[in-house]
Write a protein that binds this DNA or RNA. Sequence first.
RNA 1: UGGGGUAUAGCUUAAUGGUAAAGCUUUAGUUUUUGGUACUAAAUAAUACAAGUUCGAAUCUUGUUACUCCAGCCA
Length: 625
Amino acid sequence: MTELPSDNAIDTPTDGAEGAGGAPERSRHFIEQLIDEHIAQGRWGTAGDPTVVKTRFPPEPNGFLHVGHAKSIWLNFSLAEQYGGSCNLRFDDTNPLKEDDLFVRSIVNDVRWLGFRWDGCDETGADPLAGVKFASDYFRRMHDWAIELIEKGLAYVDEQSSEDVRKQRGTLTEPGQASPFRDRKPEESRERFEAMVRGDVPDGGAVLRAKIDMASPNMNLRDPVMYRVLNAPHHRTGSDWHVYPMYDWAHGLEDSIEGVTNSICTLEFEAHRPLYDWFIDAINRGRSDPEKIHHPQQTEFARLSLSYTHMSKRYMRQLVEEGRVSGWDDPRMVTVAGMRRRGVTPEALRAMCAEGGATKFNALVDFGRLENAVRDDLNKRAPRRMCVIRPLKVTITNWGEYGDAGRVEMMTAVNNPEDEGAGTREVPFGGTLYIERDDFMEDAPKKFFRLKPGGEVRLRYGYWITCHEVVKDGAGEVVELKCTYDPQTKGGDAPPADAEGNVRKVKGTLHWVEASTAAPVEVRLFDRLYTAERPGKATGDHLDDLNPDSLEIVEGALLEPNWRTTEVERSSGTGAFADGIERFQFERQGYFCVDPDSKDGLLVFNRTVTLKDSWAKAAKGEGGR
RNA sequence: UGGGGUAUAGCUUAAUGGUAAAGCUUUAGUUUUUGGUACUAAAUAAUACAAGUUCGAAUCUUGUUACUCCAGCCA
């Protein structure tokens, strides 16, 4: 399984730790409490000192970022921000065989999109790599320290095959055995190591190992490999090196070099901590205090797991390679790229991360939390529009009685009820309309508030209409509704009271579009990729739990004209998305965004998430009715 | 079966020897031109188990159980 580095940090000022009055609004998670202690002790400096918290997000550039990484990113960056420190973005590029420059670009882009700025980052984004650190920048220093360890008799070159090394490692219950090369002279190891570095040793011909304890109950301490021979070019250092450091040797040193105070990582590295401590201590052995290198404090937290998804790189790759999804940025994928294309906002992602905080408990967070976070954010900021996804024709039979039968009247619609400043827009209404197929039932249950034969509903911002006739095709399918409208209900307002003072009421309000002006669009409706909370748990194969209905493409949807986000909306904050993605709430249906597949002739909208739908829930409870 | 880690309500998280709390979920209601949002209320429900220390234990100790990570020249 691939790694998942540490993660995120705090976050928005609104959920910050303390108000001016002093009382904390939220409890502090264990890493914050730990840092509080460090500050109280003056461990890395005094409060307010920028060195007091230094973190880093250390991905390997060998794949795409996903929600799990987002959590790590949030943790690291928010901690730095909260304490006035800083956070590095550093690539752990110690394995040239698996890494690629392509991934560093996408990762840099994703971190920026999430809204975080690393130490030395170019605010404008003109130089995307500004301030970005690479483990490979430190290869020379690591090499020199390795030589030191060899000379101190703390490391040796082992020239056995990897199979022999594995056999000697022992098992979980049996100690390992010493390599025949373990006690060779430092000069000899040094000579062999230099040969490895020069490229005089074939791949797999030798490794440099730390001399620790072959009998340790902690497998990581049984003389771990520090360097292996890889006669391969590196995406940054070219052919400079023929040996590359192992993660365990390199990682702690990178943190040390960068002055990282809190090396935040996931739980599985807990058993590696003694090794990282050993390496630093080994380098510092025999050095005077001022010569000693910095010793970071590693702290482990539980990675984020979301139900109905899987964070495994292997599984994701399989989905992509087998064509189960359209790519790494398929909107159903929980990659950062996928979620972005789905329409998820970085603000929602950050809010979800902050909600859970940091713990050591391996929790399974409900996928609904992500959906809630998205609804929460988009409810406040998404401009409203009307889009009929599965159209049913409605003819207003008395439209001609109150004016030209071919006329179109402009109705005023509110752009965002949560944001008065977002203003209004004009939506055309006419004698031929479309409503949602699901909003009509010929044989409706009592609690169905929408349109039924003889029933009256409000068309939002339009008029009230009453259904008088249902037109069916040869197959018995409803193809058209003949309705009348009440000209006294313009804008959707209730008609004046009658002579006795009774006001007519209507329970249902529907969205609609006018036939001659509506824009045909393609709508992609996404559902969860898997049907099981823990995909693959039951059968061992995640493909068994794939949701066959995770994508539905609807081609004949109809969107109101002039749907583009307006300047008035943007300046009020509604529809002002920093990433430039156009997002909307299609009234009564959900949040949608424009997909990059859109062309001039064909607009494509992705459904990010539905609105909560208590009717659907109730109807389902009644067995489909 | 060696070592490390974790365990509080359906889910996620608080409580740091002194009344087990909150959010989400659920249910009911109010408002509403989105069966959305907001607001109100209710509900039920938890310290994995067992001992010990203590006036008092979710918290400290010991044991047990369950889950999880570790035997790459991956990260």
